[in-house]
Amino acid sequence: MSHFSPTAAVNYFFNYFLMKGVLVTIGLTVAAVIGGLILGMGIALMRMSSNPVLSGFSRFYIWFFRGTPLLIQLVVIYSGLPQLGIKFSVITCALVGLILNEAAYLAEIVRSGFMAVSAGQREAAWALSLSPWVTFRRVTLPQAFRLMIPPLGNSINSLLKATSLASVISVEELMRRSDMLMQEHFQILEVYAAATAYYLILTSVWDAVQRRLEKHFGRSSAAKSRRVAARAPVAQTSAEARA
């Protein structure tokens, strides 16, 4: 059998079993982004704090989770922790692993976003008697967030694909279900063509969302300061690729 059947690929694309895997992939991504953002914000705040214990812990956390493969983290949580009597359901394991890992990346993005807002902005807010909360909410956060969108977008794109690693600990997301179909019918190219199409659709949809976000939050910066020595914050480096 040495041919590729487009019909079979299309059939796999509309396969109900595979579609449910797509939903699991989306669910994992959304949950990991939300969890990762909340935890990452906390890690970033700790990293920026003047307390050496807090910033030291945060530094260690980021170093650890960015310095080890997500695959190992997932396997350790799923198969290693039960050895210590700590046991979670499969889906919880996947979520814990993805959130812990994503938080490390997002923490650095959040931190660099805040660091790129010039000190003069905070000083102007103080001089105007703005409260710390108003300064954060109305002055620093919106400016930091605008700078965070591009690296945040890249990180979420990576995360979307990284959820496929959860297949190794038997979470039935898109990748795992593709494997299962493949082992049943041996139409390797056809099955993975369908899965590839789904990943491309998901990342493209996210790209479009990201572009709209950038446009929405960048509206004031569209008009670049003329003449004035612009004190534009440094451009962000793109998020590192995941293992």
Binding site: G120, Q121, E123, A124, S129, Q143, R146, S220, S221, A229
Partner: peptide, 20 residues
């Protein structure tokens, strides 16, 4: 706080909020 309410400051680099 009381002192900052009594004083206004103008900076060399303006420090206007660029997103407003």
């Amino acid at each position: 706080d009381a002192v900052r309410r009594d004083t206004g400051m103008v900076f060399q680099s303006f420090n206007l909020f660029p997103h407003m």
